[in-house]
Write a protein that binds this DNA or RNA. Structure first.
Length: 722
DNA sequence: GTGGCCTCTCTTTTT
DNA sequence: GAGAGGCCAC
């Protein structure tokens, strides 16, 4: 057997990881150290050398994109179809298990996956039922509470009531009521998928044993992003029967705020004491200086597992630091730089602009538009999150499963058919009192003649539509069914008549959905295709299928940049308050997470990194004078070259003042000016210094001349003290 | 059901 | 200061 294609392209550490005996393995993989490659090659090794059949492998990732990419690469490497291997996200795999074992999991066969939008609706409904004041008890917060508990593996009945703690007690009640409503309507939210499949292991040992025999090895990507319940799920499944390979980087853990536990990496050592540990520290991505900067920044974090990236490559160009006058200047500078770079024969798509928060993208986009540079913004509204799509899916969900209350609430009055808040409330009341689904409640009310007038007609025709579609579903293809649902429900006309281009765009999206249905391939023949499509729509929000063919600059948040790399990277808005974000300054833990985010950002760059910040920035409607980010100050001086426009005034002084963290309205000392001082201007004559803003070459002072106050840029309008 | 007005907030986001 | 979400009036 020739294993050279599997091990030849690897360095020593990578090879050690790939060829480790079929036992527990922890791979600490630094940024750009070939983590995915190791995972893929290890799968190949296990199949070829340890003779594990494809069906014996389970590979778990966090995003559908990562799962697809892995499948792709293994098929490429082994020139075979990955059929039989289980690839998927934690949620996807949990869902698959629950579908197969719905009875053991205590679910109805037709259970539906509830996405966060629908979840919020359900939470609101429960809270209204409980007559909680929405301003005092924000539904979003309750939703967050429920998800956080589920992420920790806790059911409402596991959580201790605390007599004095009104907050927890109230939210607990919401949790409890929400849960029973979901159970009754056959709805399973994201957290519930994980929690339930964990319970499935615990309550059905024979099932667990079955899967433990089936899986001969489990591989987990981005292990630092696992939360408590995910870890528990893995731990029970693997225990001491199924070997685990987990790959992660504690320095790239940036999702603590949504429940990820970096500690799981340390815990792994304890729970699996015989696990082998391999560190991948050689970086193949970035230049020497970029790596040096990244190492220096991350070294300021405490309690790391310890890893220091190194590279064979040259130092490369120094990192540029541009101090912009304001956010406009920053955006223009970046757009100019990209123009230059493209003029030198580079591709736009090889450059990326990264920022901490989405709000920053607008100014950047405007500057790119002005210069006619095509760009693509990542992470916008996803296809299945669009209203019109969710409405169409709402109808289909009801066709599939009438007791899906979330879908019922969503579309019963869309398009409007006279079923207002009052009628809906009657339905909810009846449903609650008699433990019925909204669908059943509607039937009862109609039979009893308890609804009158427009509401009666509307509700009647709504039910009629669903019934007719259900009939049609028996014989029609998915595509035909969807087409009819969109037409017959009135959604097409309703969205089409929305004013402006919006209406047209919505209809186009609906057509796109019909196309997607036509192309949809059923993965599991045994499954009802409609059921499968609906679940997929909830679990895979549909990678924004933007035209990737056009050569465009990539704009995204630092979070979405994880896992990607670009020859040229701009990191915009490196200012205190923005990055690190002001909301993470209080807790040291949050600040460390921000620092890891900085580490992620820096290590995205292959050849050239440009940091920019604005001395003055409009935020929340106010002019803010933020100091240079501490993360930039943590980079050794010899890695950085400060870029200034010409006519520079005293660069060191500017940097010093930035480092001191403050820009005052007092002009810099080296200008020889002070507030209140008399100065002479060659053209305007004598005046008094009233105010100062900015620093460095952008320093502007306000001077009161005889004919009024003027703002002057010091660099261009030298003032003489007099 | 829509439009206008008021208030409130103001990260990061996958499933 | 902008955008979202809630509320009220027509």
């Amino acid at each position: 057997m020739d294993v050279s294609p599997i091990i030849d392209p690897l360095n020593d550490a990578q090879r050690e990881a790939v060829t480790a005996p079929n036992g527990h393995l922890l791979v600490l993989a630094g940024a750009g150290s070939g983590k995915t490659r190791v995972l893929v090659h290890r799968m190949a090794w296990l199949m070829q050398v340890d003779q594990i059949p494809p069906t014996g492998l389970l590979a778990v990732t966090f995003t559908n994109k990562a799962a697809r990419e892995m499948r792709h690469r293994i098929e490429d490497l082994l020139k075979l179809e990955g059929r039989g291997m289980w690839f998927g996200t934690f949620h996807g795999i949990a869902h698959r298990l629950l579908r197969s074992h719905w009875q053991d999991a205590g679910l109805p066969e037709n259970f539906q996956v509830l996405d966060s939008d629908d979840q919020l609706r359900m939470v609101k409904r429960v809270m209204r039922e409980m007559q909680l004041d929405e301003s005092r008890w924000p539904p979003k917060q309750a939703q967050w509470f429920i998800n956080a508990q589920k992420d920790e593996g806790l059911r409402a009945e596991h959580i201790q009531q605390n007599p004095g703690d009104l907050y927890t007690n109230t939210l607990l009640k919401v949790y409890q009521r929400y849960q029973s409503l979901c159970q009754q309507s056959g709805l399973v939210d994201f957290g519930e998928l994980l929690l339930r499949s964990h319970e499935l292991w615990l309550h059905r040992p024979e099932l667990l044993a079955h899967y433990q025999r089936r899986f001969r090895h489990i591989l987990v990507d981005e292990f630092q992003d696992t939360n408590t319940i995910q870890y528990a799920w893995l731990q029970v499944l693997a225990s001491n029967r199924v070997p685990l390979t987990v790959v992660g980087d504690d320095d790239q853990s940036i999702y603590g705020w949504r429940g990820a536990k970096v500690e799981n990496i340390q815990q792994f050592n304890t729970d699996f004491p015989n696990a082998r540990i391999v560190r991948l520290e050689q970086n193949y991505r970035s230049t020497g200086l970029i790596l040096k900067a990244a190492n220096a920044v991350i070294a300021n974090n405490q309690g790391r597992l310890g890893k220091e990236l190194w590279t064979d490559s040259q130092d490369g160009e120094p990192i540029s630091l541009y101090a912009a006058f304001n956010e406009q200047d920053e955006a223009n500078y970046i757009a100019d730089s990209i123009s230059d770079w493209v003029r030198q024969g580079n591709l736009r798509r090889e450059s990326a602009i990264l920022y901490r928060s989405n709000a920053q993208s607008r100014v950047l986009e405007e500057a790119l538009v002005r210069q006619g540079i095509p760009y693509r913004v990542y992470g916008g509204l996803r296809f299945y999150d669009r209203q019109e799509i969710r409405n169409a899916l709402g109808y289909l969900r009801l066709v599939h499963y009438r007791h899906d209350d979330a879908a019922f609430e969503r579309v019963v009055n869309i398009p409007p058919r006279g079923i207002g808040a009052k009628s809906l409330q009657d339905l909810r009341d009846l449903a609650r009192d008699q433990s019925l689904s909204l669908w059943q409640a509607a039937e009862r009310l109609l039979e009893a003649g308890a609804v009158k007038g427009r509401a009666r007609t509307g509700l009647g025709s709504f039910i009629e539509i669903i019934l007719e579609l259900s009939e049609r579903a028996q014989s029609a293809t998915l595509k035909e069914l969807t087409e009819q649902a969109i037409r017959q429900s009135g959604l097409r006309d309703y969205h089409g008549s929305e004013k402006g281009e919006k209406g047209q765009a919505r209809v186009e999206n609906l057509d796109e959905l019909i196309n997607a249905m036509a192309e949809y391939e059923v993965e599991d023949e045994a499954q009802d295709p409609l059921a499968e499509f609906i679940a997929q729509a909830a679990l895979d929000a549909g990678e924004s299928q933007a035209d990737e063919h056009e050569d465009s600059v990539q704009l995204m948040t630092l979070h979405s940049a994880k896992g990607l790399e670009f020859p040229l990277v701009f990191l915009a808005g490196t200012e205190e308050g923005l990055f690190p974000h002001s909301m993470s300054l209080e807790e040291p833990g949050r600040l460390e997470e921000e620092r890891r985010l900085a580490y992620v950002g820096i290590t995205r760059a292959m050849k050239k990194l440009v940091l920019t910040y604005a001395e003055s920035r409009r935020m929340y409607g106010q002019e803010k004078f933020n100091a240079l980010s501490r993360f930039v100050r943590e980079i050794p001086g010899d890695c950085i070259q400060e870029v200034r426009l010409r006519n520079t005034v005293s660069r060191p002084a500017m940097v010093q003042r930035a480092n001191e963290g403050l820009f005052s309205s007092q002009p810099p000392a080296e200008t020889g000016l002070q507030l209140g001082q008399r100065v002479r201007h060659p053209k305007f004559g004598e005046g008094i210094v009233m105010n100062c803003e900015g620093s460095g070459h952008h320093t502007r002072v306000q001077v009161n001349f005889d004919d009024g106050a003027k703002w002057l840029v010091l660099a261009y309008a030298p003032l003489e003290p007099c």
